[in-house]
């Protein structure tokens, strides 16, 4: 815990307002992410973990509101006080996000190389040629074989795992200090998931980025993260290093979740 605090979230409240009334999806969540750290935000569907991610990126669903008392500080800046232009500049450059569904997060009618290059062009790169070259280099870094040729392909020509690598390339293009990964492997097959997890681990070591890993899967948490925060019904019920979470959970809900995780007898 010697690394400086990169992201500090205090009393985050996210409310969804609809005709049926207001629902508090996130109900007073506080946590910090240190530079270079890989932290998991774990919970079951509907616990509010994705709402936290969207609030951090300030990409809100219609009807969603961040509570007045909430504070999000990133790298010393008050995120909730930034205007939209400053936030746009931050997104993709300093904080980026990897989504769950690589199929829908990519533009189907744009070459994947161009989509990765676009990130560089948005954040100051002037030359299209240079942006393209950087995109190819980035695709290569994410383990896409023959990246120079693949960059010319469209999303539907790539496998699910390959598409997820493209999304990772887009997220890491600007070497952000923080990557928010929202269930990035949940839509993938287990063997592909294993490869993507290995890739994320390698890239994290290489770049020193911090990762906020949002997932429902404790197996993935154990593989990748050093600390885990367990969420339930809009609140964080436990926040501890993974070894404590897995071997001496303090909260009964954490223990219950862990008991339910399917595991191979051979791995016990």
């Amino acid at each position: 815990m010697t690394a400086p605090v990169l992201l500090d979230v205090r009393d985050l409240v996210v409310t969804y307002v609809s005709d049926a009334g207001a629902v508090r999806a996130v109900d007073g969540v506080s946590f910090a992410v240190h530079a270079g750290e890989t932290v998991a935000l774990v919970g079951e569907s509907g616990c509010g973990k994705t709402s936290v991610a969207f609030a951090l990126m300030r990409v809100m669903a219609p009807g969603a509101r961040i509570g007045a008392g909430s504070r999000i500080t990133f790298d010393g800046a008050d995120l909730l006080a930034l205007d939209e232009r400053a936030m746009c500049d931050l997104r993709g450059r300093k904080i980026s996000m990897i989504f769950q569904e690589p199929a829908s997060a990519l533009n189907p009618v744009m070459k994947v190389g161009a989509q990765v290059a676009e990130v560089a062009l948005l954040h100051g790169e002037r030359s299209k040629r240079a942006a393209w070259d950087r995109a190819v280099a980035m695709l290569d870094r994410t383990g896409i074989a023959d990246a120079a040729r693949r960059a010319h392909q469209y999303p539907h020509e790539l496998s699910g795992g390959m598409r997820q690598r493209v999304l990772i390339a887009m997220a890491l293009m600007m070497r952000p200090a923080l990557v928010i990964a929202d269930e990035p492997t949940s839509a993938l097959d287990v063997t592909v998931q294993a490869q993507i997890l290995d890739l994320l681990r390698d890239l994290q070591r290489e770049t020193g980025m911090a990762v906020l890993f949002i997932t429902h899967d404790f197996g993935v948490v154990a593989e990748l993260c050093s600390r885990a925060m367990v969420m339930r019904a809009g609140r964080i019920v436990e926040d501890a290093p993974v070894d404590r979470i897995f071997h001496a959970p303090a909260d009964p809900y954490t223990a219950e979740l862990l008991r339910a995780v399917p595991r191979l007898t051979a791995d016990r």
Partner: peptide
């Protein structure tokens, strides 16, 4: 074997050897 080795272990103390098919 590859499929079995790809199942993540919900225990940070266990590091499983990945078998690639």
């Amino acid at each position: 074997k590859a499929l079995l080795s790809a199942v993540p272990v919900p225990d940070p103390r266990v590091k499983k050897k990945r078998i690639v098919w």
